[in-house]
Design a protein around this nucleic acid. Structure first.
Lengths: 205, 205
DNA sequence: TGACAATGTTACCGATCGGTACGTATACAT
DNA sequence: ATGTATACGTACCGATCGGTAACATTGTCA
């Protein structure tokens, strides 16, 4: 796939009332459907129908359904780090508070009916093949998450920062999954509390 | 589904050299393929082909593919609690050691190439609909896991047993998912260590 | 006005999906 | 040996899958 038809997804083009591009409508609808119901569960016919476009339009903007799924995850990735950076920016120089803010937010998000967890995690479960375009995006996102958490564990002064960083990642992934498994009142609401306990137990005394 | 065609899956029938029943071959193959590659990813044609049987044979023993998936998970459930009970039996009266043994085993299992996590968790991700036969089995399994972990947290003398039990569940689910996301050297290898830290921090002092 | 790019329309492709109608073989009891 | 029930195979179903060919329509800018 040397072409990059699906790179340009600019929201606006300067002029005020430009009609929304087909590619954007398609990606928006695919985002919603892929996330809520799963990538394999959604056919391209349903996407184009809900987007009010036709199938050739989809395939003019995206080389394949798999690549559309990868585009969905790239968009997800962007918004993911936005949320992460918000929590970080809210507590400058205080990684422990940053983690707590991020996890509190996750814990809250999991406590809504029909919560569907992390789109990245779900995609990796749907596509075990490491070469699948969607999975490539997913794995990169998780590697980056691990990198950041370990870095914050260092900044917190953990005795064994890699272990603490990984422990936090396990709690986070557990919250994503438990959120969709248990629904309201599930274990995911305890993620921030447990993370703080784990951090406390992992600091140099 | 008032019929129960798929209930009887007895291994042996008393006589010595009875030929393996078609239903068992089908379930064995389905177990392997569903677990390794995902339920949605596997068609019934591939199952019957690999099992050396034909499609009508499958549908004589199982009312539908969805019910076959549920049967796969019921088998998974049996073996899951076998492993769990082994860890428990290895350390009578010592819930902390029981947890450690169980998690050490999970941590090890995650450190093999192409590890695919927990079949229950994966099925729930593949089928968001709470009424899907496979998901019903999956949710029941997770509820039971939560119940047991919370009970063990009580037995350990935790300050807040529900929080600790849920924290352990989050770590376990995180290990399942991270194991398949990161492969060798991933965060899942730190699950037992982090659980022990969390337990230590959660006990009444 | 003319040219271009984007989108729409319709119809279609081969492959695979889950599932079944129906005839045939095999085993066992009488 | 024959009847009967159970297990199995051949062949097929309609629906949907992801993807495409060919052409008409539109809006924009020069």
């Amino acid at each position: 796939m040397p072409t990059d038809k699906n790179i340009d997804l600019t929201i606006s083009d300067g002029h005020a009332s430009a009609p929304p591009k087909a590619a954007k409508k398609i990606l928006d609808v695919a985002y919603d459907l892929f996330y809520r119901r799963g990538i394999r569960a959604i056919g391209v016919d349903e996407i184009v129908k809900r987007a009010g476009v036709t199938k050739p339009s989809l395939y003019r903007s995206f080389p394949s359904k798999d690549e559309l799924a990868a585009s969905y995850l790239r968009q997800y990735d962007l918004e993911y780090w936005e949320r992460f950076d918000e929590a970080v920016a809210a507590h400058p120089g205080d990684p422990r508070a940053q983690i707590k803010a991020f996890l509190t937010r996750i814990g809250k998000r999991t406590q809504v009916a029909d919560y569907r967890g992390c789109g990245m995690t779900n995609a990796a479960v749907e596509y075990p093949d490491h070469n699948h375009p969607a999975r490539v995006v997913s794995e990169a996102n998780k590697q980056e998450l691990r990198r950041r958490l370990r870095g914050m564990a260092v900044a917190m002064g953990a005795q064994d920062p890699d272990t603490l960083g990984d422990g936090l990642l396990l709690l986070i992934e557990g919250a994503y999954i438990s959120g969709q498994l248990f629904g309201l009142g599930g274990p995911a609401q305890a993620v921030a509390r447990n993370a703080d306990l784990l951090i406390e137990a992992s600091l140099k005394k």
